[in-house]
Write a protein that binds this DNA or RNA. Structure first.
Lengths: 92, 92
DNA sequence: AAGATATTTTGATGATTATCTAAATATAGT
DNA sequence: ACTATATTTAGATAATCATCAAAATATCTT
């Protein structure tokens, strides 16, 4: 299920934009939601999809919940693509 | 739409397996379908999803239709992931 | 304990998706 | 032209998904 949920998470532009924002700094759910013209529950849903896919981590600090990138899954995804990309018969 | 359809195409294990098989050699739709316990129309549907995403190319040769990998889209996908993966503040 | 703020959960809805069977199309060989 | 082979298209169904409004939960402040 790892690769499937990761690619599924990446297939939505809203979620890709969230990941792209988190690349610069950790953000609260509210900060993230403000960047979109989408309801908070929908953003919360997207964050949950990313969390289930292991691409983000959340941590509560007081009233806020901070989200941050979890790059370990990216390794798996990139590794799969590189293996696919590099043709088998190529020896180097 | 490019990245979304590419990631969506990659989110299905059947389609990932098809891509993985095509890495070794070009195959006809029939050869591909034989590898799965899924109906031919369903495989045809998956091939069409991959084609729409620009990840495979099809070419008719007589009765057969050959499918082959199209790696140009992979560049785009990997580039996006690498940009996401490499943290912004890292200078090297 | 009561009110304010931040975020998620619930329940509902319309859109998309994976799958099937049956029918249609295209090519090759007789 | 007819038949066999290869593959896709059409039509239907059940499952999943993105979205919203309303309600619930958690933490902080007073």
């Amino acid at each position: 299920m790892g690769l499937s949920s990761a690619f599924k998470a990446l297939s939505d532009p809203v979620r890709r934009k969230i990941l792209y924002m988190l690349r610069e700094r950790d953000m609260t759910a509210g900060e993230i939601a403000e960047k979109f013209d989408i309801s908070w529950p929908t953003i919360s849903h997207h964050l949950n999809v990313l969390k289930q896919a292991g691409m983000v981590v959340d941590e509560r600090k007081g009233q806020n919940i901070y989200y941050s990138l979890n790059t370990s899954v990216f390794e798996e995804v990139v590794a799969f693509l590189m293996e696919l990309w590099g043709r088998k018969e190529t020896g180097f």
